[in-house]
Amino acid sequence: MKKAKKLIPFYTIKAASDGDVMAIRYILKHYEGYIAKLSTKMLTDECGNGYYFVDKTMKEQLTTSLLQMIFNFKI
């Protein structure tokens, strides 16, 4: 059985869009794992061994996009 995903309460999103630092941190923490998953890449060496790494540029771009969405949130 799948575990239900916890949603971010509306008042937290509204507070973050108004500039509340704690609310912004809460939202960033909520999406931290998802951002890390999206920014994880795999490299293979000449022997065919695979290595996973987090692309820091991609992670920063995704975090920046999330912050822009928070500040552009309109009711």
Rank of each mutant, 00 (worst) to 15 (best):
A16V: 05
F53N: 12
T64C: 08
I35Y: 00
D45N: 15
V54R: 15
G48P: 08
L7G: 05
I27C: 02
D45H: 11
K6S: 10
S17E: 05
I35G: 02
T64Q: 10
T57D: 15
M69G: 12
I27T: 04
N72F: 13
I8K: 06
L66D: 02
C47P: 01
M58N: 07
K56L: 08
K37A: 11
S65A: 12
Y34M: 09
N49Q: 12
D45A: 08
L67T: 00
L7S: 08
Y52W: 10
M58K: 11
H30P: 04
S39R: 01
G19A: 02
F71V: 05
R25Y: 08
E60G: 05
K3Y: 13
M58D: 13
E32G: 03
M22D: 08
I70H: 00
L62I: 06
Q68A: 08
K5V: 05
T12E: 11
G48N: 07
A16P: 04
H30R: 09
T64W: 04
T57L: 13
F71H: 04
T64E: 09
K29T: 10
C47W: 11
Q68L: 06
D20C: 03
F71L: 07
I35Q: 02
F10D: 06
Y34G: 04
I35W: 00
M69H: 07
D45P: 10
R25S: 11
T40Y: 13
K59H: 07
L66S: 05
K74C: 09
L62T: 02
V54Q: 14
L7Q: 07
T12W: 04
K59D: 01
S65H: 10
D45E: 15
Q61A: 07
N72K: 11
T64P: 06
Y51L: 14
F53L: 11
D18E: 13
I70T: 02
I24L: 02
Y51M: 14
K5T: 03
L66T: 02
N72D: 13
E32Y: 13
L66N: 03
Y31H: 08
S39F: 01
Y31S: 00
S39H: 07
V21E: 14
L7N: 06
Y11P: 01
T40V: 01
P9E: 02
L28P: 01
K37W: 09
P9H: 03
H30K: 08
K3P: 13
Y31G: 01
I13P: 03
K29D: 06
G33K: 15
T64N: 14
A23V: 00
T63I: 01
T40C: 10
D55A: 03
K2D: 13
P9G: 04
S65G: 10
I13G: 01
I24G: 00
L38P: 00
D45T: 12
Y31Q: 01
L62R: 02
K74S: 14
K29P: 03
L66E: 03
T64D: 12
Y34I: 08
T57Q: 14
Q61T: 06
I27M: 00
T40S: 15
I35L: 05
G33T: 11
A36G: 05
T44R: 14
I8E: 03
L28E: 05
K2M: 05
I75P: 10
F10C: 00
Y51C: 10
K6E: 11
T63S: 03
K74A: 11
Y26R: 12
M42L: 10
L38R: 14
K59A: 10
K14F: 02
K6P: 06
A15F: 09
R25D: 15
E32R: 10
